[in-house]
C-alpha cells in the first residue's frame, strides 16, 4: 500500500519540535530515518495525522567526548556510528551491534535514536492491513486478544533492536526532551516490558530522544555483541547478546553485564548471571553455569517463526561464546 496522508513538519530546533509535539498530542509521529516508520505506515500500523521530522535539527547529529562520557546525538545514522573514530576505539561493542543492523541500504539512513525507540515486533502484528483483516485485531493493534498466547489484554511482542543490548551493557543513559522538561534516565529504565507500549515515548510521554550518554569504558573492560539470524544481512536478530566484562586480569571477573535482545518485550539483562560471575575466576565450567543461568532468566514466546525453545538454545550458545570471547577462555573445539 502507499503511504496514508499526513501533514509534514520539519522543525529547525528542539524547541520548535517539542512545541509541535505538545500541540499535536497523540496525533503525531516522529520520523528519524524512517526505515521502520515507513513500513509501519504502509501497513497502516501507524496512522499519524502529523509527521515531525528531526532531520533539520543539527544538534542531534553530533558525536562528541565530554568529560568521561561519549555523547551521541540521536539522529546519527548507524553508518555514522560504524564510521566514527571515537566509537570504533572506545565502544567497539556498539560499533559491532550497529554494523549488524539490517543491511547496508538501511544503515545509511536508519538512526541510532530510531533503533533505541524501535517498536516491538510480532508475526501477527508486523503484517499488512489485508493480512491482519483475516483475524480479530490483536491487543497491540488496538484489540483485546493475543493470537500468540490466547490471553486477553496482554501482549508479548518482542524487542529486537540490535544496538540496545550493547548500550545497556555500557551503562548508557539517554536524554529525553519534552516541551518544558528535560530528563535523563538510564537506558534500561526507558523500556516498560509491556508489548503494547514497550518504551516511554511509545507510551505517550511526548518527548524526543535527543542524545545517548555513555561513560567511557575503562581500559580493563572488554565487550562483544553476538547476533544470531538466519541470513547475515537484512534479517532482524532472532537472538542477540551483548556481554561486557570488567577486570579480567588473572581471569578474575570484577563485573559483568549480559544483555539480550530478541527474547522478551524489552531488552533483558541477566541479573542472576551477573551476580554469579562477579569475583569469580573464569573457567569453562563457570561459563557454562553462568550461561545456563542467564538463559533460565529468558522467557521468549513464539512471536516469530522460530520456537521459543530453539531461541533459548541459541541464547545459550551465544552467551557461552561471548563469555569465552571477553574472558579470553578458549575451549578450542566450539569456536
Amino acid at each position: 500500500m502507499r503511504l496514508p496522508e499526513f501533514i509534514y513538519h520539519e522543525p529547525e530546533n528542539l524547541q520548535e519540535a517539542t512545541n509541535l509535539i505538545s500541540e499535536f498530542n497523540g496525533r503525531y509521529g516522529i520520523i528519524a530515518g524512517g526505515t521502520d516508520l515507513m513500513v509501519k505506515m504502509k501497513q497502516r500500523l501507524q496512522n499519524s495525522q502529523y509527521l515531525i521530522s528531526l532531520d533539520r535539527i543539527p544538534a542531534l547529529k553530533t558525536i562528541k567526548e565530554k568529560a568521561d562520557n561519549i555523547i551521541i546525538g540521536s539522529m546519527n545514522t548507524l553508518d555514522d556510528i560504524v564510521n566514527s573514530e571515537i566509537i570504533k576505539e572506545k565502544l567497539p561493542c556498539l560499533k559491532q551491534a550497529a554494523w549488524e543492523v539490517g543491511s547496508p541500504l538501511l544503515r545509511s539512513v536508519a538512526t541510532i535514536g530510531g533503533n533505541i525507540c524501535l517498536n516491538t515486533r510480532c508475526r501477527f502484528y508486523n503484517q499488512s492491513y489485508f493480512w491482519r483483516s483475516s483475524r480479530e485485531t490483536c491487543c497491540k493493534a488496538g484489540g483485546h486478544v493475543c493470537h500468540v498466547t490466547n490471553q486477553e489484554d496482554a501482549c508479548y511482542s518482542t524487542f529486537v533492536a540490535d544496538t540496545v543490548p550493547a548500550l545497556i551493557a555500557y551503562d548508557a543513559s539517554i536524554k529525553l526532551v519534552g516541551v518544558d522538561k528535560t530528563r535523563k534516565l538510564s537506558l534500561a529504565d526507558f523500556y516498560t516490558g509491556d508489548g503494547r507500549m514497550p518504551n516511554q515515548i511509545l507510551k505517550g510521554s511526548n518527548e524526543i530522544l535527543t542524545e545517548i550518554e555513555i561513560p567511557i569504558p575503562k581500559d580493563d573492560i572488554r565487550s562483544v555483541y553476538h547476533k544470531f539470524r538466519v541470513r547475515e544481512s537484512i534479517d532482524f536478530p532472532l537472538v542477540g547478546v551483548a556481554v561486557m566484562m570488567k577486570g579480567i586480569e588473572e581471569k578474575h571477573c570484577q563485573d559483568a553485564r549480559v544483555v539480550f535482545t530478541g527474547v522478551g518485550s524489552a531488552p533483558v539483562e541477566a541479573k542472576l548471571a551477573r551476580e554469579k560471575i562477579i569475583g569469580q575466576q573464569l573457567t569453562p565450567d563457570l561459563i557454562l553455569e553462568v550461561a545456563t543461568m542467564a538463559v533460565s532468566e529468558l522467557h521468549p514466546v513464539k512471536t516469530d517463526l522460530m520456537s521459543p525453545n530453539y531461541k533459548r538454545g541459541i541464547a545459550q550458545v551465544l552467551v557461552e561464546k561471548a563469555l569465552r570471547d571477553v574472558g579470553g577462555v578458549n575451549n578450542g573445539k566450539d569456536d
Partner: peptide, 24 residues
C-alpha cells in the same frame, strides 16, 4: 526496504528509496 531494487545514491550513499520520503 527488503530487496534493494529501489537503491539510489543519496548524497553518495546507497539507500532504499522506497523507505525515503521525497521531502527528506
Amino acid at each position: 526496504g527488503e530487496c534493494g531494487a529501489c537503491t539510489v545514491l543519496m548524497d553518495g550513499k546507497p539507500v532504499s528509496s522506497c523507505l525515503v520520503l521525497a521531502v527528506k
